[in-house]
Amino acid sequence: MLAEMITFEISGQLFGIDIMSIREIRAWSPVTVLPGVPRYVSGVVNLRGAVLPVLDLSVRLGWQSTDATPRNPIIVVEHEGQSRGLIVHAVNDIVSIDTDTIQQPEAAANDGITSFIAGLAPMGEEMVMVLDLKSLMADDRLEMAA
């Protein structure tokens, strides 16, 4: 079976999200910073009258924070009725990935990223890290930003 995904980059690494979870891809807009939210929450933006928490996906994955500029797109995803904006470094393509080729990542001790990865899919010479939105968005502290 084929799954369609949007691929994007963070720190030179290739990631994918199921296209059915994506509401839109929008240009960067300044965020309103909130006190007391997790470090990976950059702030919130107004999305057609709704408050949208915007996550720095690089920080959420345990990497360096993104110095966001107008070149950084925001991917708006929805999972189980919750919408979040994800700051990424670049959006690449829509690709079809054979779900039979997706392999489970090896869990490394205290490596925060593998808990957010649903699997690894070969795509030519590269590997696409397929994000698990359920675990990515699971944080009670995020509700403070919504």
Rank of each mutant, 00 (worst) to 15 (best):
M1W: 10
A3N: 11
E4I: 11
E4H: 10
E4D: 04
E4Q: 08
E4Y: 14
E4F: 01
M5G: 01
M5F: 05
I6W: 01
I6Q: 03
I6K: 08
T7K: 01
T7D: 03
F8E: 09
F8V: 11
E9T: 08
Q13L: 14
L14Q: 07
F15P: 10
G16W: 07
G16S: 01
G16R: 04
G16V: 04
G16C: 09
I17V: 15
I17D: 04
I19V: 15
I19C: 13
S21Y: 13
S21G: 12
S21C: 11
I22L: 12
E24H: 02
E24M: 03
I25R: 07
A27Q: 14
A27C: 06
W28L: 13
S29R: 15
P30F: 02
V31M: 06
V31A: 04
V31F: 00
T32F: 10
L34Q: 09
L34P: 09
P35W: 03
P38H: 03
R39T: 11
Y40Q: 10
V41F: 11
G43A: 03
V44H: 08
V45D: 02
V45I: 13
L47R: 09
G49P: 08
L52I: 08
V54F: 03
L55V: 04
L55I: 15
D56M: 06
D56F: 02
V59W: 12
R60C: 15
L61Q: 10
G62Q: 05
W63Y: 10
S65K: 06
S65W: 11
T66W: 12
T66M: 13
A68P: 04
A68V: 11
T69H: 00
P73L: 05
I75T: 02
I75A: 14
I75Q: 04
V77W: 07
Q82S: 15
S83I: 11
S83D: 06
R84G: 05
L86S: 02
I87Y: 06
V88R: 06
H89R: 04
H89D: 15
A90Y: 01
D93R: 10
I94Q: 02
S96Y: 01
D98Y: 05
D98E: 15
D100R: 12
D100H: 14
I102S: 02
Q104C: 00
Q104S: 07
P105A: 12
A108E: 09
A108V: 05
A108C: 00
I113N: 07
S115P: 05
F116A: 13
F116Q: 12
I117V: 15
A118W: 00
L120S: 14
L120W: 09
M123Y: 02
M123F: 07
G124Y: 02
E125V: 06
E126Y: 05
M127E: 03
M129Q: 15
L131N: 09
D132S: 05
K134L: 07
S135N: 15
L136I: 01
L136F: 07
M137P: 03
M137F: 07
A138S: 14
A138R: 14
R141N: 09
L142W: 10
E143G: 00
E143P: 00
A146I: 11
A146H: 15
